[in-house]
Design a protein around this nucleic acid. Sequence first.
RNA 1: GGAGGGGUGCCAGAGUGGCCGAUUGGGGCGGUCUCGAAAACCGUUGUGGUCCGUAAGGGCCACCGUGGGUUCGAAUCCCACCCCCUCCGCCA
Length: 424
Amino acid sequence: MLDIQLFRDHPDLVREGLARRHQGTEAVDQVIEMDLLRRGLLQQVESLRAEKNQASKEIGQSKDPDQRQERITAMRALGDQLDALEKELAELEPALGALLGTFPNLPDERVPVGADDSENQVVKTVGDKPEFDFEPRPHWDIGPALGILDFERGVKLSGTRFYVLNGPGARLQRALISFMLDTITKHGYEERYTPFMVKEEVVYASGQLPKFGDNLYHDHEEDFWWVPTAEVPLTSLHKDEILEEGDLPISYTAYTPCFRREKFSAGREVRGIKRGHQFDKVEMYVFCKPEDSESQFERMLENAERICQLLGLPYRVMNQCTGDLGFAASYTADIEVWAAGCQEWLEVSSVSNVRDFQARRAAIRYRPEGGKGTRFVHTLNGSALGLPRVLIAVLENNQQEDGSVVIPEVLRPWMGGVEVIGPR
RNA sequence: GGAGGGGUGCCAGAGUGGCCGAUUGGGGCGGUCUCGAAAACCGUUGUGGUCCGUAAGGGCCACCGUGGGUUCGAAUCCCACCCCCUCCGCCA
């Protein structure tokens, strides 16, 4: 949620931000207009209320029954007038709130203008792509050949874009989750296990609603939405709370499955397990003071990179352009790992500084020490990392000519000592 | 799912139509006393909106689980819903 004050004082900043995101700016004027209307109505309503409160108080104190009755009659008339204005206000306020909720966060100046992810900028590349004296195969060949990846039965159970992991494949996935959680925890993020189904207001708070409801699964009978990322429940952990400055920064990590309808990529990228309706992810999330969000971003990015380094995966860091930038983000760095079999850079993490955008939606504030009042916190989120894609890279980059896959050293403690997954 | 009890400020807990933004106690903060601390005593202690003001600050409005209703006036009465506790049923 953008600050309404921004529309009053610096509407051009809002227009400029929208334009950089290739969005129309007409709604800005609509907000300004509604805001003016609202404040005018509010003033009328409140002065009538003040009058009514005063009169009611006097009626209570009045002893003379005739005078009492006279004033009650007068107030009844004022009440009707008030009702009409209040009704108007009651329609306008939610409408303005809803409109304001459709505005994305303003992109930071550092975000390059671009149409889509093809215009993201490479910030740096770390590690060397593995070399092979044979033709490396994609995971959709390696997995089934090893008997650890079963597409047919996934489709039998749930349809396209689903799969089943078998034996050491399932265990490798579990090992990756544990390894990531344990590593991130060591960096000072406290683990949380959250619900995977949440209320609509929770999905709204992090910004996936109202605009992206099409990409979410939800129960049509109850108010349950399946989380598309742990960012959603983590944001609302402190919804409607006022935190103490001394408690900040608060850093969380959580494993959740993620559920997405992938309506916008229908028919695309269906090969393999790169994009499914259900995938696993370990997420990092930070609540901090506004002046700290810049350094927390650096920290989070480093933490995500560290996972790639420990797994021995070559990766590159990208600066997301405005066309790819998420709704809530002010700026975002993507991490992409190289997958030798499908010959692709796979996006495995997006680290975003959301600033106060989600904090406003979720009403998450803190009390500055010594100061007065409250301020909105800044929030950041980033994956560490997205799972099936890391699994893809591990399988493809560590494959051997005989079709077996060497397990990265750091994962072996979670693999029960298994060093190589061989044909079964 | 059924029966009963309950949701009030940071916490505990009073309040059943006007004197209640809300008694009181605890905690927090500031102060007096003290070499210092404890105790005692005094003071203070919610959030949001809006208007005025350069600001400090001040006025007004709203908020007692949520949403409606009754009333000149609602924490208090009525209706619906949500949540918590106890017991029963069912159940991984």
